[in-house]
Measured scan of single mutants.
Amino acid sequence: MTEYKLVVVGAGGVGKSALTIQLIQNHFVDEYDPTIEDSYRKQVVIDGETCLLDILDTAGQEEYSAMRDQYMRTGEGFLCVFAINNTKSFEDIHHYREQIKRVKDSEDVPMVLVGNKCDLPSRTVDTKQAQDLARSYGIPFIETSAKTRQGVDDAFYTLVREIRKHKEKMSKDGKKKKKKSKTKCVIM
């Protein structure tokens, strides 16, 4: 069974824990209790493949930012979460993405942009803004509501699919490099 290491990042209060708990335990946590770091595991079937999701729910508070490099190193894919009623959390996505790329030393890291709290009427981040940002990053965008469960499975499952595509691409690139290195030079 394939294991996928997913990391949920975003500013404090955007609903990272609520999304994760909704996926794992099928219930909505409405009281806000700032996370330092929590880890969850769940076995699911995605596109006919049974897999184990190892999900790291991270601290959004700035005082825990020193811990970010460590979990970013171990993560295979990242859910970059903002709240649709919090423009600052949307603007912060850029910083999370840049930090992930720096730590992973790669421009090509599996990510999904997630606009959470889409059940709320007080939207300050337009869907088109988020779609445009995701398009500019070359990553999928999904709106979710941890409260109603809308888009929750889709967000995590899409990230797994992005990781699969990335692994497939990397193995193809690896095979191309191996083929090239088999060419021999004969000096007579």
Rank of each mutant, 00 (worst) to 15 (best):
residue 160 V to S: 02
residue 178 K to L: 07
residue 175 K to R: 08
residue 130 A to P: 04
residue 128 K to V: 11
residue 143 E to A: 02
residue 133 L to H: 05
residue 169 K to V: 11
residue 161 R to G: 08
residue 132 D to G: 05
residue 182 K to W: 01
residue 162 E to S: 05
residue 178 K to P: 10
residue 130 A to C: 11
residue 186 V to Y: 01
residue 159 L to T: 01
residue 153 D to S: 12
residue 164 R to H: 10
residue 159 L to K: 00
residue 134 A to Q: 02
residue 188 M to T: 13
residue 151 G to V: 03
residue 125 V to E: 07
residue 176 K to C: 12
residue 159 L to V: 03
residue 135 R to D: 14
residue 176 K to G: 15
residue 168 E to R: 07
residue 169 K to Y: 03
residue 162 E to N: 03
residue 134 A to G: 05
residue 178 K to H: 14
residue 130 A to M: 13
residue 146 A to F: 00
residue 129 Q to M: 14
residue 162 E to L: 06
residue 131 Q to F: 08
residue 178 K to I: 07
residue 152 V to I: 12
residue 166 H to G: 11
residue 129 Q to L: 10
residue 159 L to R: 00
residue 125 V to S: 10
residue 132 D to K: 09
residue 136 S to I: 07
residue 167 K to H: 07
residue 155 A to S: 03
residue 165 K to F: 02
residue 133 L to N: 05
residue 181 S to W: 01
residue 169 K to A: 03
residue 177 K to W: 02
residue 133 L to I: 13
residue 132 D to R: 04
residue 126 D to C: 08
residue 145 S to K: 11
residue 167 K to A: 06
residue 132 D to Y: 02
residue 152 V to A: 11
residue 141 F to W: 06
residue 150 Q to V: 02
residue 165 K to R: 09
residue 159 L to F: 01
residue 187 I to D: 15
residue 170 M to W: 12
residue 139 I to K: 01
residue 173 D to F: 05
residue 128 K to W: 07
residue 158 T to R: 05
residue 126 D to T: 06
residue 128 K to T: 13
residue 177 K to R: 12
residue 169 K to M: 11
residue 149 R to A: 11
residue 170 M to V: 07
residue 134 A to Y: 09
residue 127 T to L: 10
residue 142 I to H: 09
residue 152 V to L: 12
residue 167 K to C: 02
residue 142 I to K: 08
residue 153 D to N: 12
residue 154 D to E: 14
residue 186 V to L: 09
residue 159 L to D: 00
residue 129 Q to Y: 13
residue 144 T to M: 06
residue 139 I to N: 02
residue 126 D to P: 03
residue 165 K to V: 08
residue 135 R to M: 08
residue 133 L to S: 05
residue 158 T to N: 06
residue 157 Y to W: 10
residue 138 G to D: 04
residue 126 D to N: 08
residue 164 R to G: 13
residue 157 Y to N: 12
residue 165 K to W: 01
residue 162 E to A: 05
residue 133 L to A: 11
residue 130 A to T: 07
residue 172 K to I: 11
residue 186 V to D: 15
residue 128 K to H: 10
residue 180 K to A: 12
residue 167 K to L: 01
residue 128 K to R: 09
residue 153 D to F: 09
residue 156 F to T: 01
residue 158 T to S: 05
residue 129 Q to R: 12
residue 126 D to K: 04
residue 152 V to Y: 11
residue 130 A to W: 15
residue 126 D to L: 05
residue 132 D to I: 04
residue 137 Y to D: 12
residue 134 A to I: 09
residue 159 L to S: 00
residue 133 L to K: 08
residue 131 Q to G: 12
residue 138 G to R: 01
residue 160 V to E: 01
residue 152 V to M: 06
residue 135 R to N: 13
residue 138 G to I: 00
residue 153 D to W: 06
residue 157 Y to H: 09
residue 181 S to F: 01
residue 175 K to G: 12
residue 153 D to L: 13
residue 139 I to Y: 04
residue 135 R to I: 14
residue 131 Q to V: 07
residue 168 E to G: 06
residue 160 V to G: 01
residue 137 Y to S: 13
residue 166 H to C: 12
residue 135 R to Y: 05
residue 160 V to Q: 02
residue 177 K to S: 15
residue 155 A to G: 05
residue 153 D to K: 12
residue 169 K to D: 11
residue 152 V to E: 06
residue 152 V to H: 06
residue 154 D to T: 09
residue 164 R to W: 03
residue 137 Y to K: 06
residue 154 D to N: 10
residue 142 I to F: 10
residue 167 K to G: 07
residue 136 S to Y: 04
residue 137 Y to A: 09
residue 127 T to M: 11
residue 136 S to F: 06
residue 168 E to M: 10
residue 166 H to W: 04
residue 166 H to K: 02
residue 137 Y to I: 07
residue 159 L to Y: 00
residue 165 K to A: 05
residue 177 K to L: 15
residue 172 K to A: 10
residue 134 A to V: 02
residue 173 D to T: 06
residue 181 S to A: 13
residue 137 Y to F: 11
residue 133 L to F: 10
